[in-house]
């Protein structure tokens, strides 16, 4: 999602230049959401180092370093932990609708659901995956608002019935001028607020394969709205949009990293 969000932001900025200051009409809204996806998407491969910090009751209790690999064309995604030692070598590999977790101490794989937190934190697979907002949700314009010093569009997204998503209801606050997503709320079907996610830093990077900029969130702050005081901060660095080796999205490759 972080990557998704970063792309979103880029599109937002672009869109802002052309979007008038009044409420978005349906067509504009649709194109904005689609743009949020497109600007984050890289047609080629993607790799970045990600740092995850977990706070419990405002105290830092866990910190991880991992590498995220993506091949959007084939819907493949992988996350490999490198620090701390107790987590190093653990990895997630997504193939189709399956999320496989590798435990190097056991040398075993486990097929898990998409909704599990990554590495026991509040971050989810979707936080690191390609943005698919326009495919998975239908959008509704709520209002133009102010977020800090930014003028933002407040958009409501409801999951389409066939979409397999972690959050059925999303609220997005998108910067009018830059089209960067700045804030996102994830709610349950009963409208209970579950997580608030902030995107305080976006980076645009030129992708050769796409022939255009890709927007990447450098920092994501996730606030747990159920367990107050808990939260996760994700920081991305060393983003690389060059091609990855062909055979990398396999169990064998992930296993080989910790042998």
């Amino acid at each position: 999602m972080s990557v998704r969000l970063s792309v979103n932001l880029v599109f937002l900025t672009g869109a802002l230049l052309s979007v008038p200051a009044f409420a978005l009409n349906d067509a504009d809204l649709k194109s904005l959401v689609s743009e949020l996806d497109t600007r984050q998407r890289n047609s080629g491969d993607y790799k970045s180092v990600v740092f995850i910090e977990q706070r419990e009751k405002s105290k830092v209790t866990q910190a991880f370093e991992a590498t995220v690999f993506r091949r959007d064309a084939d819907d493949k995604w992988m996350l490999l932990f490198s620090k701390p030692k107790s987590e190093a070598g653990k990895g997630y590999l997504r193939l189709d609708k399956n999320l496989f977790l590798y435990e190097p101490a056991l040398g075993k794989w486990e097929r898990r659901t998409d909704r599990s937190g990554i590495g026991g934190t509040n971050s989810r697979r979707s936080d690191f995956d390609e943005s698919r907002l326009s495919e998975e949700y239908t959008a509704k314009f709520i209002a133009d608002e102010k977020l800090g010093k930014f003028d933002v569009h407040h958009i409501l997204l409801n999951a389409k019935t066939e979409a397999d998503v972690a959050s059925p209801v999303l609220h997005l606050w998108v910067d009018k001028s830059s089209k960067n997503i700045l804030k996102r709320q994830e709610r349950s079907l009963s409208d209970k607020l579950l997580r608030t996610v902030y995107y305080p830093a976006w980076e645009k990077k030129f992708s050769k394969s796409k022939g255009a900029d890709v927007y990447i969130p450098r920092e994501i702050r996730i606030v747990d709205e159920v367990e107050k005081g808990n939260g996760t901060t994700v920081v991305l660095r060393d983003v690389n949009l060059d091609g990855l080796p062909a055979n990398i999205f396999t169990k064998a490759w992930l296993e080989s990293q910790s042998r």
């Binding site: 490999l80 030692k85 190093a88 930014f150 450098r218 690389n240 080796p245 080989s256 990293q257 910790s258």
Partner: peptide, 26 residues
């Protein structure tokens, strides 16, 4: 707040299929 930045400089080195040393894990 300074939200957006551009990544400057050359692309980082090509990704290795396997890191130089296998991860040290417990």
């Amino acid at each position: 707040a300074q939200i957006e930045t551009r990544a400057e400089g050359p692309q980082t080195a090509a990704v290795q299929a396997k890191p130089a040393a296998a991860l040290e894990f417990r």
